[in-house]
Design a protein around this nucleic acid. Structure first.
Length: 927
RNA sequence: GCCUUGGUGGUGGAAUUGGUAGACACGCGGGACUUAAAAUCCCGUGAUCUUUAUGAUCUUGCGGGUUCAAGUCCCGCCCGGGGUACCA
């Protein structure tokens, strides 16, 4: 039989489906292993070649673990809520549910063709009411909980109310938006509304004013990605940063645990580092400065209280609430102008354009807490409203941004720290600040001559004594804004009574997403849900926001454990059996989003006693991103004439992305291009050598860049086994790489070669030899088993594939087709190329599928060598090879080498200075 | 800007974690089979030089350093990718 991958793959995919080969039971004698992929967002352009990279890798591991005797849970689902379906709905009027359904069907068909071993009976999708019921349920729990720092866990708000009734805020150490102070008596006198407002200050899901990108023309809030240069990408309308009431999750309450928990995880160091930096723990002090002529205080956070005597000005963020209060009449106009200018700059712009120094003086002065000096208060957008208190004390001598600011506005620079081994200098000559945290204090009153570290604690002690501040820990992490003014998401199970939000009863969940006539915000700027008819609960209006994309993806891994449970998010027994995810496969682009929110979500559920593990994802592998190669054509400005790549420098041109399907080998198919868009129908071209050559760039694969490569054509042409092998062969799993199909022929050839090894006669029938294998064949086999086992366990799948290839090449050379070799080989290859492996396995006469067998064991005996071949180097340059018996002790090797005629030739009668013998590695002779 | 990651032949990449740089594959060149093509198989393939050899020299983004020995470790640069809080 010829190798007919189409028939073979279809046959086995059908069989796995019919037999439910990969259905997983929640009960087993075997140890459990949970392999999870980050589920995809079903986009309109279908599954692209980047998706399977992770899915194939996790599938290889899942299949391997089954062979190693584990009960493996390997499910799949869809992150079905998202912006693209909504945008499409706005444009076409088609309900996002329909778009999503179509896309999911397409994804499923594409996934099925790859031969992935998912247990499809456990499918979850985030837009299913039976699923989002539980997303809403968790939200209600968050709403009804607060975070107690003493207990280091979430507690019910009802407990907090009892506490307020009895002792007010006394001795409370809990997470809050603002620090409040009241007695039991005061609490009990408050109205229901006042009490509810106070409780909002503590809830883990709470309403507050947050800064968002508001586009009044579109009537909606935009992501930073959707804003460029202060205007919306769509339409180019102005966008301003505006305070709006939003739901938030108090993830900052979990900052410390999120940080600590990282230590227990098998994630890459870089990913942990990203999360650590994102959480951004810094120790420092909060100090209150009095303001001249005002009752208000200016509270700042600094990590360098030791530099307090070097303060030469204060800086407030443009959003700071004191701006309005303290600005003098003289400065009013320029301050207002500056603030309104700064308002339209995104946070990213502000931080990126670090060289651009801007700011304005308020006219007001703060009072130095120790010297009583008058310190001018400035406003500048290099101070961010969202970090610390949104205000800083500027110490230009020891902070580079403050230094740049001081130089630009000609403010004084006072040195207060002398780095070790240096002398105090005249700061007028400085070209940069001395930011180092090592040194001794000068010009600093009571901390003079102290090293920085001691000075920090001395100042903290002093401000605590004076009751003007305290030592504190600050996090860069911000609470997550949790509401979106969009349609396609989970509605909030919250209704309003006299403007106060109340939770719906759990028994009334899920609160189903209503149908509406249009997916746009209302004319008055209300979110789309305001268009829904009877959007009320017991006669009260419901919240019109929806939850963000990440809401549904937080706890989905729990739902796979028991997807049909109607009583609970996840049943206790199922959760205790599956614990957490043993291996999570997904992209590193989720490092600070999903992977942080999901951890917090899980920790909260852990606090509630719903889940048994504090961390959701024990081991994490980030598959690299497969990048697209976007093709570009170059249009001469103001014309419809296109200039070939190497001639474009002679013209003034604009780069235009062109669909990669119109380009072959960088050569544009001009006829197809003309038909692609009506605007190009009468295009003219300036060619080189009769061809139009396109340029290219490597970037993220995206429908909007026209560079999406889908796997369908390749599966059609080469089969799933080849595609699977090829995607793994492409390079290290964790590295990003551009997609390129140049090498796929080689993998296809290798699979055919493997098949032919057992189908070599004229009729192409299956031929197998029952002979006992030779030592050489056993050596090849066991070398391969060992290598592949090591590589799978180290997620080095590219070298595994190479090892297979070498093995097949060697066997082909020996014309070896023995049963005793093929049988283990089928099992080895079954993780990578499961279809061909099953087919050969069946041809060998096996009745059961490979998943019921176990991984072959390595017999080290076959791998032992009697000699070692040493490279012999002179002064580090390898000159010849020398074979030495393994049993010769290391001490004797030196003499042996020096005596060899080759060595004598290189030594040329000189006396070697030194001989280095590294066992089994190298011999180096220094002369 | 900040965080993170990568840079090795014409191309994708390998290198036992400090020990023969370029495995394996693509591509390319040559040959066999064939009327021919496809497929398949065999040989060659980092660069330069010469005395054409079991030869020499150079070579892992650039510049320094540590070491008997550096793609790998250290310091300083350059360039690409991802993230940067409402894309998923």
């Amino acid at each position: 039989m010829e190798y007919n991958f189409k028939e073979i793959e279809k046959k086995w995919q059908q069989k796995w489906l019919n037999d439910k080969t990969f259905k997983t039971d929640n009960h087993s004698d075997k140890p459990k292993y949970y392999v999870l992929d980050m589920f995809p967002y079903p986009s309109g352009s279908g599954l692209h070649v980047g998706h399977p990279l992770g899915y194939i890798a996790s599938d290889i591991y899942a299949r391997y673990m089954r062979l190693k005797g584990y009960n493996v849970l390997h499910p799949m689902g869809y992150d079905a809520y998202g912006l693209p379906a909504e945008q499409y709905a706005i444009q076409t009027g088609q309900h996002p549910a329909i778009t999503t359904e179509t896309n999911i069907k397409r994804y499923r068909a594409q996934l099925d063709k790859l031969g992935l071993s998912f247990d499809w009976d456990r499918i979850v999708r985030t837009d299913a009411p039976a699923y989002y019921k539980w997303t809403q349920w968790v939200f209600l729990q968050l709403f009804s909980s607060y975070y107690c720092y003493d207990a280091q866990q979430a507690r019910p708000v009802s407990e907090l109310i009892d506490c307020f009734k009895q002792q007010g805020t006394k001795d409370l150490n809990i997470a809050s938006t603002a620090v409040l102070d009241f007695t039991a008596e005061q609490w009990n006198k408050k109205t229901e509304k006042e009490q509810q407002e106070i409780l909002m200050n503590y809830r883990l899901a709470y309403l507050s004013d947050s800064i968002v990108n508001w586009c009044s023309a579109l009537g909606t809030v935009l992501a930073n990605d959707e804003v460029v240069g202060g205007v919306s990408v769509r339409g180019g309308h102005p966008v301003e940063r505006k305070l709006m009431k939003q739901w938030s999750l108090r993830i900052t309450a979990y900052a410390e645990r999120l940080l600590k928990g990282l230590e227990t995880l098998s994630w890459s160091d870089s990913l942990k580092e990203i999360q650590r930096n994102w959480i951004g723990r810094s120790e420092g002090a909060s100090i209150r400065f009095a303001i001249s002529g005002h009752a208000d205080f200016l509270e700042i956070f600094t990590t360098r209280p030791d530099t307090v005597f070097g303060v030469s000005f204060m800086v407030l963020s443009p959003e700071h609430e004191l701006n309005e209060i303290i600005t003098t009449n003289v400065q009013k106009e320029s301050v207002e102008a500056y603030i309104s200018w700064a308002k339209n700059r995104s946070e990213r712009e502000r931080q990126a354009e670090v060289k651009m120094v801007t700011g304005v003086f308020t006219g007001a002065f703060a009072v130095h807490p120790f010297t009583g000096e008058q310190i001018p208060i400035w406003i500048s957008d290099y101070v961010l409203a969202g970090y610390g208190t949104g205000a800083i004390m500027a110490v230009p001598a020891h902070d580079s941004r403050d230094f740049a600011f001081a130089r630009h506005f000609n403010l004084p620079v006072t040195q207060v720290i002398v780095p070790k081994g240096e002398q105090p200098e005249d700061t007028a000559n400085w070209e940069e600040s001395k930011d180092g945290k090592e040194g001794t204090c000068i010009n600093s009153d009571f901390i003079n001559e102290m090293p920085v570290k001691n000075a920090i604690s001395a100042v903290i002690k002093k401000i605590e004594e004076l009751n003007i501040g305290y030592g504190t820990v600050n996090y860069r992490l911000r609470d997550a804004i949790f509401s979106r003014q969009r349609y396609w998401g989970e509605p909030f199970p919250i209704y309003y009574k006299e403007g106060i939000p109340y939770p719906m009863a759990e028994k009334d969940l899920p609160l189903q997403l209503p149908d509406i006539d249009k997916y746009l915000p209302t004319e008055t700027g209300e979110p789309p849900l305001a268009r829904a008819k009877n959007w009320t609960y017991n006669g009260y209006p419901l919240d019109c926001n929806t939850m963000p994309g990440f809401a549904g993806s937080n706890g989905y891994y729990l739902r796979y454990m028991e997807p049909d449970n109607k009583e609970a998010y996840v049943g206790k027994q199922a959760n205790e059996y599956w614990g957490n995810v043993d291996l999570y496969m997904g992209g590193a682009e989720h490092a600070t989003g999903h992977l942080l929110y999901a951890r917090m979500w899980n920790k909260f559920l852990f606090d509630l006693g719903i889940v048994s593990k504090d961390e959701p994802f024990q081991k994490l592998i980030n598959q690299g991103m497969i990048q697209g190669r976007t093709s570009f054509v170059y249009r001469e400005r103001g014309t419809n004439r296109f200039i070939s790549l190497n001639l474009k420098n002679n013209y003034q041109v604009d780069s235009i992305r062109v669909d990669i399907n119109l380009v072959d080998n960088d050569i544009l198919d001009i006829e197809q291009f003309k038909n692609w868009r009506s605007e190009f129908a009468d295009a003219e071209f300036v060619l080189e050598n009769g061809k139009y050559i396109c340029g290219y760039e490597i970037e993220k694969m995206s429908k909007s860049y026209y560079n999406v490569q889908n796997p369908d054509n390749l599966v059609e042409k080469y089969g799933a086994d080849t595609l699977r092998m090829y995607e793994m062969f492409l390079g290290p799993l964790e590295q990003s790489k551009p997609w390129n199909v140049q090498g796929i022929e080689g993998t296809a050839r290798f699979i055919r070669k493997f098949w032919k090894l057992y189908h070599y006669n004229d009729e192409n029938n299956f031929c197998i030899s029952e002979d006992v294998p030779s030592l050489q064949e056993l050596k090849i086999l066991h070398k391969t088993i060992k290598k592949i086992q090591e590589d799978i366990e180290g997620f080095s799948f590219n070298t595994s594939v190479s090892a297979f290839m070498i093995c097949v090449n060697e066997l082909t050379e020996l014309k070896s087709n023995k049963r005793a070799i093929l049988e283990p080989l089928c099992i080895l290859i079954s993780s990578f190329a499961p279809h061909i492996a099953e087919e050969l396995w069946q041809l060998l006469g096996n009745k059961e599928t490979i998943s019921y067998t176990s991984f072959p064991l390595v017999n080290e005996e076959y791998l032992q060598e009697s000699t070692v071949t040493y490279p012999v180097s002179f002064n580090g340059k390898t000159r010849f090879m020398l074979e030495i018996d393994v049993h010769i002790p290391v001490e004797e090797i030196e003499a042996l080498v020096l005596q060899s005629p080759e060595a004598q030739r290189w030594i040329e009668g000189k006396t070697p200075k030194k001989v280095i013998v590294v066992p089994k590695k190298i011999i180096n002779i220094v002369i």
